[in-house]
Design a protein around this nucleic acid. Structure first.
Lengths: 297, 297
DNA sequence: AGTTGATTGTGTATTTTTGCACAATGGTTG
DNA sequence: CAACCATTGTGCAAAAATACACAATCAACT
């Protein structure tokens, strides 16, 4: 009979793809991971991984094993919480991965309120362009532009939000007036760095404003925002960032509007961990009850 | 974090109640079981067993842990079957526990037909008075007088069956005639050994025939049957044993009739093991499609 | 093409786990 | 009540699993 504990090495290696990464997360030596996997394969009498130069890749048998091992993991986590009364992730921290603008401009401004309610919970906010993986356990909670592909994730809609075209009042005062979309051709724009965008959802600029004359690009939303404030040109900006800034003015609100949706994603194993649940509720309340902030007035 | 494999020691010890028994089934030393349980308790930070002189008894925490660990075990067994293509119980044997009469007189006479269909499956028939425990894995399949109390068992009704009062023609010819229940008082009877009957379901003799004059008792149904055949007296006998025996004759068929039901019980983990499934189907077919045999003509 | 950095694999020392022999306990039976 | 049986617990040697140091490999970049 095989060793049940070896399934943990299997799960971690299937997620990390590399012996060293898996070993680091399991706090063991990489040779141990290698040997446990070998032992498991021998006991089950199947090859679970293809060892290519790119790392360990699940075989067909490994793919069949994965959901079964995950179910065992889910039960085990539940068991550990219920019996030992301990939460699976150590410490009192909850890692939340969000799109950069939302995290840095909205959530970061409300964590103080949350902390006063839950002084024992520490929030790690990962507000980056690169997508965090919940199934690889890089984050506990994620806010995403779309529902999850698959996996053992629970997801619900947080809110709709809107981007509009904004410019500094100074810029508008010193440039030709804009009465319709056709007037945009002669203006300067701020946008993303195309190459660096991992998420196709962010590429709406090109779809919204054709053949724009872009004079400044950045991966960083705050940098774009400050550049627009500085009067370098027009830019598509989240309403929740721009509408309370008196130095900015909306341009062509009737014609130009990008509406999107934020989704909250949480791993099903963590759904009922009190700490994670508290953060989920906080985020749902914060973003779900503020349509004027998210959609603009 | 605790060691998943320790759950196996926990499960086996909870079933066997004794370190030595659990160790024997796990093919390890009893000290290993003891140490693994201690380690598990330390990691989960709860006591799982009370160590009384009578053995290891589950605590409240242990009782809470049990169903969770069992779910993990179920998944693990499924995993082992699906991935390794191996059945949980080694070899090609299926152990069937049945009431003595049914096993020795009916099933034993039809195993040859089953074997010709499934030459690779070996049936171990445990036809004894003492009840086998499926949850302790003493048998793979059981036929019982009642639905299971609880546990991870799947059960369905196999058939109704009947017992009638029989006597040897020789006996009836040499003793006073029996025209009604009141005539039974002067006759001799064959019955069970009261003290040794574990199963209250078998105690129907006393309920059916009051104040019978019992002259021979045995725990063994065949012994009873042969004693009746030998003309020692009257006895309650399963119709499936007696009705094809020309030397026996039914007594008071209108007045005396005990009807009961056989249930098939199988552990849910084994339900979908091909080998076990084949035996379940065989038993269901054999006993379900023979009402004339089981109930008498 | 050479260098760097990350990865996997191999041999060996160390640590941990396990099995065995034996002691201790506690209930049962003649 | 003593002898017996089954059980649990303890110390120590054997076995197994693990970490460590180092070699080999391969992709990426200068």
């Amino acid at each position: 009979m095989y060793n049940w504990n070896d399934l943990r090495y299997f799960l971690e290696l299937s997620r990390q793809g590399k012996l060293l990464r898996a070993a680091a997360r399991l706090h063991v030596d990489h040779t141990t991971v290698s040997r446990r996997i070998t032992a498991l394969e021998k006991q089950l009498d199947v090859r679970l991984f293809d060892k290519s130069p790119y790392g360990y890749q699940l075989t067909d048998a490994g793919l069949r094993l994965l959901p079964l091992a995950e179910q065992i993991e889910t039960r085990s986590n539940q068991l550990y919480q219920d019996i030992a009364g301990k939460d699976a992730r150590l410490g009192g921290t909850v890692r939340v991965a969000t799109p950069e603008a939302l995290g840095s401009q909205v959530i970061a401004r409300h964590v103080a309120g949350f902390r006063s309610e839950h002084p024992d919970i520490e929030i790690e906010l990962v507000a980056e362009t690169r997508r965090m993986s919940l199934s690889k356990r890089e984050a506990d909670i994620a806010i995403s532009f779309s529902r999850p592909e698959s996996g053992r994730l629970i997801a619900w809609k947080l809110c709709d939000y809107r981007l509009r075209l904004y410019a500094a009042r100074d810029y508008l005062a010193t440039h030709p007036p804009i009465h319709g979309s056709e007037d945009l051709a002669g203006h300067d724009f701020v946008s993303y760095v195309d190459d660096l965008i991992e998420m196709p959802e962010l590429r709406f600029f090109d779809n919204t404003i054709k053949n724009a004359h872009v004079v400044f690009r950045s991966t960083n939303v705050s940098a774009q925002f400050n550049a627009i404030l500085d009067g370098i040109g027009l830019g598509l900006v989240h309403c929740f960032m721009a509408q309370d800034e008196p130095r900015l003015q909306v341009v062509l609100p009737q014609q130009i509007s990008v509406e999107r949706t934020y989704w909250l994603l949480v791993h099903e194993d963590l759904r009922h961990v009190a700490r994670v649940d508290a953060v989920c509720k906080f985020l749902t309340r914060l973003l779900g009850h503020n349509p004027s902030l998210m959609m603009g007035d």
